[in-house]
Amino acid sequence: MIIRIIDGITEFTGKLCAWTLFAVGFFITFEVLMRYVFNAPTIWVDEISRVLQVWVVYLGAAYVLKHREMVTIDVLLSNPNSVWRRLAETLAIIVLFIFAGTACYFGFQLWLKATMAGHTTDTYLAPPKMITHAPVWVGSALLMLQGAAQLYRVWAEPLPSDDVMGGAH
């Protein structure tokens, strides 16, 4: 039950990231049109696009992990159901927990400090830094949750074959 909830959140955020990148492409196209056709550049497209892209990177990591699209090299461990492959996958997820946990902890501290102090960016729009700092800890927390779901799958379900040469995924 909890695995399905985590997977559902991850699926939702992954699709949200895809639509966000579509919006960023639209914003940039709009900016090019405004700047070079109408000679009236905007002041918001650059900063909004950058902030959205940061959100996409951090939220999208859990989606990529769920769909097993992270970089993997399985020359030695090509049998997906061997105990060695399961141990290697477990070790990879533990390393993920260390890095994502560190990013989540320190990212939250930075976000909390900026939020409590009311810091804003040093740009013309000056959005609150809580918006730019939040994706680090939110995305890292989601990545750890999805990592826990994947760790469960490593030992409770047969691992999918990663036959990259066998066709499209």
Rank of each mutant, 00 (worst) to 15 (best):
G60T: 07
M70L: 14
E47R: 02
V45T: 08
V51I: 14
G60M: 08
L52K: 11
Y63M: 02
V57R: 04
S49K: 05
V64H: 05
V57C: 12
Y58R: 01
A62P: 05
S49G: 10
V56Q: 04
V64T: 15
R68C: 02
A62C: 03
Y63A: 01
E47T: 01
W44M: 02
I48E: 00
V45E: 03
V56E: 01
H67S: 06
Y58W: 15
K66L: 12
V45W: 03
L59E: 08
L59N: 03
R68T: 00
I43M: 06
I43H: 08
Q53L: 15
E47I: 03
V51E: 12
K66M: 13
R50D: 10
V56A: 09
V51W: 11
E47Q: 10
L65R: 07
V56D: 03
V45I: 08
M70R: 11
E69H: 09
A61D: 09
V54A: 15
V71R: 10
E69L: 11
L52I: 08
T42M: 00
V71H: 09
L65F: 00
R50L: 15
A61N: 10
Y58H: 11
Q53V: 15
Y58I: 00
L59K: 01
G60S: 06
E47M: 05
V71F: 07
V45H: 03
A62Q: 02
Y63G: 00
A62G: 06
V57Q: 04
L52D: 10
V64D: 08
A61S: 15
S49M: 07
V57N: 07
L65D: 00
V64R: 05
L59W: 03
E69P: 04
L65A: 07
L65Y: 00
K66A: 10
M70Q: 12
L52S: 13
Y58G: 07
Y63P: 07
S49P: 09
V54F: 13
V71T: 13
M70P: 02
V45D: 01
L65M: 09
V54Y: 12
V45L: 06
V71W: 07
V54W: 10
L59D: 01
S49E: 09
T42I: 01
Y58P: 06
W44Y: 05
G60Y: 08
E47Y: 05
W55K: 12
G60V: 08
R68N: 05
D46W: 09
Y58M: 15
V51A: 15
R50Q: 14
G60F: 03
Q53G: 14
Y58Q: 08
V57A: 12
L52E: 11
I48N: 02
E47L: 09
E69M: 11
K66S: 05
V57P: 09
R68K: 06
R50Y: 13
L52V: 08
T42V: 00
A61H: 11
A61F: 15
V51Q: 11
E47V: 05
H67E: 10
I48F: 01
L59F: 03
V57I: 14
H67K: 08
Y63K: 00
L65H: 02
L52P: 10
V51K: 09
R68E: 00
W44N: 07
W55C: 11
K66E: 00
V71M: 12
L59I: 01
I48P: 04
V56P: 08
Q53K: 02
Y63R: 05
A62D: 06
I43C: 02
G60P: 00
E47S: 04
I48T: 12
V57G: 11
I43G: 08
L52T: 08
W44D: 05
V51S: 13
D46T: 09
A61G: 13
S49N: 07
I43S: 12
